[in-house]
Design a protein around this nucleic acid. Structure first.
Length: 398
DNA sequence: GAGTTTGAAACT
DNA sequence: CAGTTTCAAACTC
């Protein structure tokens, strides 16, 4: 019986879907006669109802439920369309009843009241099946267009996390690279580095496009040869995602830089620093000097409080302290500084030449900053910390 | 907008 | 691997 039931539904579905085209054209003809609705709008609505076939019948099957959304929609489409649907009701019902009786081995036509009830129920099943079939069809279309959008230009996804953009969640303006000497075939070029073709870039002699695909491929090969991970994201986002530090009013990424930054003068608090750009904290294993981008750093927190000018002044002063010998005032670099001393000594005074400076503890180094910075600067620093409005300091870390 | 500074990438 | 140079972006004026 269940097999017969399924067969009936399939049979009727086939019947109805086969009629779809004919019904569609017929309804279009009816509606084109109506001057009350714009043709374009009607077309869309007609397509909708025609595709469903049974949607309009819902209003027919449930006449006691006139508030049914589908029913109301159909009724509001066009009186002519509703009329056609109502005219179709006995036909569909008759088809159902006929199919039932054939499946049950009865003579045709079926005229008993019970068969009519069964036909009503069957109609409901058909409507639901019809609707589901249409939903499936819609879903397929959506998936198709989605796949088109994703695979036609997969790079578009990568573009969301450009290496040189702050990852603070705010929408970023599309930037264009300006390579002049690398032909956009080195990792200097952010497009090349992220595996993209250059898109509306301002580059000179750009080879990072389809036209120079062969050259580009060679360059990719050469780059990969020297570094297998060259095109992998440098920031490995933590599986825990972003940590929302509400107290500090910032969104902190829990990711990690694959190689770590090597900043010397920026304190890792400027956009030169890749960790700063990715909004991640520096780790002890990074080779940055005078790092101020660690948990609990007042310099870093200053970025998220008060006005920007004050914060930048404060950061500059902190960086200034770094370059004038107080490396690693509270950062991670104190133990590593010796490696870079040769270059630093060119810039630093006698204080920096004293190896003991690099072994100073946190407090001692903080004191060193205080002594290496003019008292006027110190006062502005403390004011900046308090977040009071003070004009931007003219002091530079240069 | 030009010039300078910066740090990553490339090179030696 | 370390030091140096090149490069393009960030930054200053």
């Amino acid at each position: 019986m269940e097999v017969a039931h399924t067969a009936i539904i399939g049979n009727i579905l086939e019947l109805e879907w086969g009629k779809e085209k004919e019904t569609n054209s017929r309804q279009k003809k009816v509606q084109s006669d109506s001057a009350d609705f714009p043709e374009k709008k009607l077309g869309r609505q007609l397509d909708f109802t025609a595709s469903f076939g049974g949607i309009s019948a819902v209003a027919v099957v449930f006449p006691e439920n006139p508030q049914s959304k589908q029913g109301m929609d159909v009724a509001s489409l066009s009186p002519a369309a509703a009329s056609v649907n109502q005219q179709r009701q006995p036909q569909i019902k008759q088809q159902v009843a006929a199919t039932i009786s054939v499946a049950a081995g009865q003579s045709h036509p079926l005229t008993t009241a019970s068969s009519s009830v069964v036909a009503d129920e069957m109609l409901l099943v058909i409507i639901n099946a019809d609707f589901l079939k249409y939903l499936l069809h819609l879903l397929k279309n959506v998936l198709f267009f989605l796949s088109l959008a994703l695979f036609r230009k997969p790079e578009s996804l990568k573009a969301k996390t450009r290496p040189n953009e702050l990852n603070d969640g705010a929408p970023k303006k599309q930037k264009h690279s300006n390579c002049k000497h690398s032909r956009c075939l080195k990792l200097y070029c952010e497009y090349f580095a992220s595996g993209m073709y250059c898109d509306e870039c301002n580059c000179v002699n750009c080879y990072n496009n389809v036209e120079y695909e062969a050259v580009r491929r060679d360059s990719v090969g050469a780059t990969l040869k020297s570094n297998l991970n060259a095109f992998r994201p440098k920031i490995n986002s933590s599986s825990h995602g972003a940590k929302d530090n509400k107290e500090a009013g910032e969104v902190l990424m829990l990711g990690k830089h694959s190689k770590g930054c090597h900043c010397k003068r920026s304190g890792c608090l400027r956009k030169y620093c890749e960790c700063f750009q990715a909004n991640i904290l520096c780790s002890e294993s990074y080779k940055c000097m005078g790092c101020k981008k660690f948990k609990g750093s007042k310099e870093r927190q200053a970025l998220f409080h008060g006005d920007y000018a004050n914060n930048m002044a404060y950061i500059q002063q902190a960086a200034n302290a770094t370059t004038t010998g107080a490396i690693g005032s509270s950062g991670y670099a104190s133990a590593r500084v010796s490696k870079k001393r040769k270059s630093q000594e060119l810039l630093l005074g006698s204080t920096a030449k004293d190896p003991s400076v690099h072994r100073l503890g946190h407090l001692q180094q903080t004191n060193l900053i205080r002594t290496s910075i003019p008292s006027s600067s110190l006062s502005s620093m403390s004011v900046s910390r308090a977040g009071t409005a003070v004009g931007p300091s003219k002091l530079s870390y240069r």
